[in-house]
Nucleic acid binder design. Structure first.
Length: 868
RNA sequence: GCGGGCGUGGUGGAAUGGUAGACACACCGGACUUAAAAUCCGGAGGGGGUAUCCCCGUGCGGGUUCGAGUCCCGCCGCCCGCACCA
């Protein structure tokens, strides 16, 4: 056996079979050990796994295997986010059914994931596109309707003209559909909504408790919820149409209430619409406003446009003070009340508008050191800044901070009944309706007589029909000849089914809960769910920082409100891993070239590339996220076939900190592969040595003791690094230990038996440290060392604390902060004793050059600093 | 514009305020080999000196400290998120 290269192609499938047969990673709900739930974000079944998946699942697997070794009852499941548009697109392109395409992809990807040797409990596998899953989602939708968490309302929606569907605000990026990239249009539709905005304060407050989440994600969610506090008041509208005599307004800057020179409403404000009815000019203007793009570029260049309605509004604090009312293109209907108070001196947008339409500018406050009024730039310093108020509701000339002025004015308005303090959120209700076939049907029936009523639970699931055609654009469910026809469950009359399906983010908002009882007849078994949840460690890409993670936090609260679980936060620990990147390559023609098609030559420091087949020179370009469009992708299957899964896993975990991007390089993979062989040789050598010697224990000599110490330190550090998800450091520790052990192996033959014993123990521990990362290699080595059972079942090695501490310590000696020497003393030696030793040293005396030190700083066991 | 993060050798990156550059990749030298691959041993931040050694060095400029990659202040550059949010 020794001398042969380790062959992952042969060993990896073998161990995967053994784990499978032993049901090594099946977790039981009635296991009395402490539960630990580790989960990676489940994949969309696109057809192939990519390197990002490999990185994600490698990390989760290390945690799962480590916690298992620590004696926890580990839940580490896998499922499929299986509804969604690509399946319908594929169905159209390939003349197949979305379900067929999706299920084939799941089978293919499952085989790929299995080839990675992940410690996953496949008995709990779920796919969101199966009625076994989505029927429970329908059931909970009905629960939520009954609990008043769902609403149906006419709403302006983002319409993706390419995908022919409604998009959530979160799915619109820079005014374009997040999938299609098409410029989004605005349409009015009746939609189903989850009333997430009712939960804004709770979702905001809950973030404070998520101490194991990245600060970045918490900040992003905080901003998304967008809490602000300000003043709500009503303008009186002189000459308004019936019902619009009062115009509610919200402002975050009550201190500027003496500075407004106009008021403005959004083009789609009810008042603007009412005015448009009798006025073609206004109608035309409103239409113009709606055509303005919402992309970032469009907004930056878009000119402020206004239309003077001729109406006057009256100031809440002074009925005689009149301001002109405009319709303006920069006022948003869906924030605040859709109406603003324009204070040009202290808001850039208002100033631009005022200059354009010749409106006056009133300075409310000025800097302390200047009497200059506002010219082309609005003056809006931070709220903590002290300024001089020259035109406000307090004492003229008062110097105070903006915040203080805001507070005082707000109090004054409330005291006089001119307005009231109001808290405002940016978060809007979650529109879940999608005009698409391949999603979870919304379990609702529309009856002309009884109205909109939920499908009775006994009639669930509402199953998607199989016989659909995608000949026509739009919703195939709606086009189906018979499916939507049904009798009303209440009156028995003719009615129709809801043909909208749910946003796929609903599917992914509770799948982690379903894993705890994937076969239950109810959505959850509350006792079981409550034991496993929240997820101890959730791992995935930062791209889900807002959408998926916020929705899940909401949905968990909704499930609590409807009695399905009793916790509020779904994910206790969250880790967002970085992307996998690769160099890009370009042919002289400007086309991207795949890494597999080029050959790189290195001469000295310069690398040149050429095309393998044509031989033409290739430009080595920037490092980018792996993407099909840039062709800089590496197929996990090919890597597994060439190097084995362990090598791919190891490389994904080494070098780069897991939260940062990692660059995939051929050289890096080669290095990982070499390390694998190095471990294998070490194990072979050790096994040979053990055959010859007996490894008897006895008093360790210095060499043996040094090995033991290195081993125990490594066990301790690697454990700590895995728990802190610092996989790159764990890897570095393992490299170091391996180097130590390889050297030790060379010293054994001519040495006392204790050295062999120390080596044997060290190699065994090394294999255990490697096991979470390269599990197949570890099992093979475990077997070669003659150990019984599986290393996957072996408990994490205990650390002898006595071996972690040295009895001597080497302290650097600094003179004036620069390192000049070192001294080795017994650990814990007192400062005075160290000082005496240091001053007696010849080299220190030479450095001092006859001068006596001003001061000697000694930090016991750490450092000596002699100040001259 | 607002918010968050980052800046260390040729490269990825280590470093509770305490020996900067662990570990790895790439590179160079040596051993083994007819040769190559593989492997093993060694070298290496920059500059200077035959050795022991000395000077400089964590984006830039200040500061705190016996001591700063780390803390504070002010810049510069890059990345990410949000954004006509009143």
């Amino acid at each position: 056996m020794s001398g042969e290269r380790y062959n992952p192609r042969e060993m990896e499938p073998r161990w995967q079979k053994v784990w499978d047969e032993n049901q090594s990673f099946v977790s039981r709900n009635d296991d009395p050990r402490e539960p630990y739930y580790v989960l990676e974000m489940f994949p969309y079944p696109s057809g192939r796994i990519h390197m990002g998946h490999v990185r994600n699942y490698a990390m989760g697997d290390v945690v799962a295997r480590y916690q298992r070794a620590r004696g926890k009852n580990v839940l580490h499941p896998m499922g499929w986010d299986a509804f969604g548009l690509p399946a319908e697109n594929a169905a159209i392109e390939r003349k197949t059914h979305p379900g067929t395409w999706t299920r084939q992809n799941i089978a293919a990807m499952k085989a790929q994931l299995k080839s990675m040797g992940l410690a996953i409990d496949w008995t709990r596998e779920i796919a969101t596109c199966e009625p076994e899953y989505y029927q429970h989602q329908q059931s909970m939708f009905i629960d939520m309707m009954e609990a008043g968490l769902v609403t149906r309302k006419q709403s302006k929606v983002n319409w993706d003209p390419v995908d022919m569907t409604v998009l959530a605000n979160e799915q619109v990026v820079d005014g374009r559909g997040w999938r299609s990239g098409a410029v989004v249009e605005q349409r009015e539709l009746t939609q189903w909504f989850f009333k997430i905005s009712d939960m804004a304060e709770e979702l905001l407050a809950g973030l404070d408790g998520l101490t194991e989440w990245p600060e970045k994600v918490r900040v992003m969610q905080r901003n998304w919820i967008g809490k602000s506090q300000g003043l709500a008041f009503d303008f009186g509208v002189n000459g308004a149409p019936q019902g619009f005599e009062r115009l509610p307004v919200y402002t975050t800057r009550p201190d500027t209430m003496r500075g407004p020179t106009f008021a403005a409403i959004a083009a789609d404000h009810p008042l603007a619409k009412a005015l448009a009815e009798g006025n073609a000019e206004i109608a035309a203007f409103n239409k113009l406003c709606q055509q303005t793009g919402t992309s970032a570029e469009a907004l930056e260049t878009a000119e402020k446009l206004g239309f003077d309605t001729g109406l006057k509004v009256t100031h809440p604090a002074d009925p005689n003070w009149e301001l002109p009312l405009f319709i303006a293109n920069f006022v948003l209907m869906d924030y605040g009340t859709g109406a603003i108070i324009g204070c040009p001196a202290h808001d850039q947008r208002d100033l631009d508008f005022a200059r354009k339409y010749g409106l006056p500018v009133i300075d409310v406050y000025k800097p302390l050191d200047s009497d200059e009024g506002v010219a082309d730039e609005a003056y809006s310093p931070p709220k903590t800044q002290t300024v001089r108020y020259v035109q406000w509701f307090g004492e003229t000339g008062a110097e105070l901070t903006v915040q203080e002025a805001m507070d005082q004015t707000l109090a004054l308005f409330e005291a006089n009944g001119w307005g009231r303090a109001q808290t405002q959120y940016r978060l809007r209700d979650w529109g879940v309706s999608r005009q698409r076939y391949w999603g979870c049907p919304i379990p609702v029936i529309h009856c002309e007589v009884c109205g909109t009523i939920p499908v009775p639970k006994k009639d669930l699931p509402v199953v998607l029909p199989e016989d659909v055609s995608f000949d026509k654009p739009g919703n195939a469910l709606d086009h189906h000849p018979t499916w939507k026809r049904i009798n009303c469950p209440q009156c028995g009359g003719a009615a129709r089914r809801e043909t909208d399906t749910m946003d796929t983010f609903v599917d992914s908002s509770w799948y982690y809960t379903r894993f705890t009882a994937p076969d239950a007849a109810t959505p959850t078994i509350p006792d079981v769910a409550n034991r496993w949840l929240p997820v101890d460690q959730y791992i995935g890409g930062v791209e889900h920082a807002i959408l998926h993670l916020l929705y899940s936090r909401y949905f968990t609260r909704a499930m609590k409100a409807t009695g399905h679980v009793s916790h509020e936060e779904p994910f206790k620990g969250l880790f967002t891993q970085g992307m996998v990147t690769h160099e890009t390559y370009k042919a002289p023609t400007g086309e991207w070239v795949a890494p597999a098609d080029i050959l790189i030559e290195t001469t000295g420091d310069t690398r040149t590339a050429r095309h393998i087949q044509s031989g033409q020179p290739i430009t080595i370009g920037s490092i980018e996220k792996m993407s099909k469009s840039k062709k800089n992708v590496v197929d996990p299957d090919e890597i597994v076939a060439t190097y084995g899964a362990d090598t791919a896993r190891w490389f994904m975990l080494s070098d780069s900190p897991p939260e940062r991007d990692v660059q995939w390089t051929e050289a890096g993979v080669e290095g990982a592969s070499r390390f694998q062989q190095r471990v294998w040789r070490l194990v072979g050598e050790t096994a040979e040595l053990l055959k010859q010697g007996d490894g008897a224990s006895g008093t360790d000599d210095a060499e043996a003791l040094a090995v033991r110490k290195a081993v125990h330190r490594a066990v301790h550090n690697v454990g700590a690094d895995i728990e802190g998800l610092r996989f790159n450091r764990a890897v570095a520790q393992i490299y170091e230990l391996t180097n130590t052990l390889v050297r030790a192996a060379g010293l054994v033959s001519a040495a006392p038996a204790q050295r062999l014993a120390a080596l044997a123990e060290g190699v065994e521990r090394l294999i255990q440290l490697i096991a979470p990362m390269m599990p197949h290699l570890a099992e093979t080595c475990w077997e070669a060392l003659g150990k019984s059972g599986l290393v996957a079942d072996a408990p994490w090695p205990a650390v002898d604390a006595a071996l972690l501490v040295d009895d001597t310590v080497t302290m650097p000696i600094q003179v004036n902060g620069k390192r000049r020497g070192e001294i080795t003393v017994s650990k814990g030696m007192e400062a005075k004793a160290v000082e005496a030793l240091v001053l007696s040293m010849d080299e220190i005396a030479r450095m001092l050059d006859g001068k006596s030190p001003k001061k000697i700083v000694i930090v016991p066991d750490r450092i000596v600093n002699v100040v001259v």
